[in-house]
Computed example of a mutant assay.
Amino acid sequence: MNVLIIGQGIAGSCLAWELKRRGTDFTITDRPIAETASRVAAGLVNPLTGRAFRPGWRQEECLSAAADFYPETERELGGSWWQKTPIFRELETEDQLEIWQERQMAPESSAYAGPLFPWPERWGGQGKAAYTRGSAVLHVEGMVNAMRQFFTEQGRFMEADVSPADIQPDEDGLFHWNGRVFSHVVWCTGWEAGCHPDMAPLKGRPSKGTILDLDLKELDWHAGILHFGRWLVYNGSFWRFGATYAWAWEAPGIPEAPAVQELMLDLVRRYSGEMNVLRARAAVRPIIRRSQPVAGPIPGLNGQFVFSGLGSKGVTTSPWSAAQLAEHLVHSAELPPDLLPAALWK
């Protein structure tokens, strides 16, 4: 077996790591480093999402897998990018407080819905700050950069812009690319998977997000992540603030002025201290069926697979989903039905 993984964002990186764990031969390819969803993402793990503060898709399995996976990559690669930290979520209305109190009592959410606190000084907030347990932040860009270097040193990474026309199948069901032969091809190309001529059902509803990297000189508070429609997270030496959602855009990796202005208006409403905008960043999220991942064989393309659709929850769902796909590729294990892309072709 020899697997060609196309795309080295969080999906491709997690899958490559899982194949490495299983001693499987693979090559992972990606374009030169650019602004992508994995590099721009906040990297939040939030166990209670949406207006109803409900647990996410396959949450217990995914949280457990993430809690094992990311520290393992830190140990083996000698890095630091995984931090367990609470989320303080703004509850402005009586309805929100009532829902949170219900989540504190419900068996599926009581482990995550914690007590209420006041907002931190120097940061404008209304109502209460609901303490969310089980949350974390992954500095995704640090991890994928370290993996790129690691796999390059192993001779398993190649910088290349691979298109569908570059993959040549033969009569034996093998695939030829760049003078090499592969048994399987896995497309981990994010929102662009839906641009593949044979993967149009994966187009979904991708959304462009813009964030700001900030120096907030008078905000001396690093107790957790603030969530108030936007999020504010400390990144070790600066703050990250975002994100916007745009359903139409021009250049995927270039911040657009209206999005930056939108964030700046929200920022000055909340923070009156001295600030410095270090940079604005933007990328497109691959959103398919409510940000649930898609991992499995592509209908009509024998031997070719897709791993995409992670949306805004990819840090949580990617390790578990990658492990399922790796088990299928290596040991022919049956994939969970809710991961399969085939349903999108119906």
Rank of each mutant, 00 (worst) to 15 (best):
D30W: 01
L214T: 07
G124Y: 10
G173A: 00
V45Q: 09
S291L: 11
K208Y: 04
D215V: 03
M1V: 04
L216A: 09
R290Y: 14
L265N: 13
A129Q: 01
A295F: 10
A146N: 06
L340E: 12
E102W: 04
M143Y: 01
P107T: 10
Q292F: 08
E74G: 00
A283T: 08
R269E: 15
F117R: 05
N276Q: 15
L77C: 01
V3K: 00
L310N: 06
A65L: 03
D166E: 02
R240W: 10
L214V: 15
I254Q: 14
P107K: 05
E250F: 05
R269T: 15
Q59P: 12
I167K: 06
R269S: 13
Q324D: 10
L212N: 09
L325I: 12
A66T: 11
G127C: 00
T93Q: 03
R270V: 13
R54E: 15
G9S: 06
E94R: 08
F117N: 03
D170I: 02
L63H: 05
Y70I: 02
S163E: 06
F182K: 00
S291V: 12
K20G: 02
E159I: 05
I167T: 00
P293G: 10
T244W: 04
M275C: 07
E262M: 10
Y112M: 04
K313H: 14
S291H: 14
A326K: 01
L265F: 07
S110G: 02
E94G: 00
F53E: 08
H328P: 01
F305L: 05
R281C: 11
E327G: 15
Q104A: 07
Q96E: 13
E159V: 04
E121M: 14
S272A: 14
A65Y: 05
A11C: 08
A16W: 07
R230D: 10
L44N: 05
A283D: 06
G194T: 03
A106N: 14
S332F: 09
P47V: 06
T244G: 11
P297W: 12
R75K: 00
E92N: 03
K203Y: 11
I10A: 08
V144N: 05
M199W: 06
V186I: 12
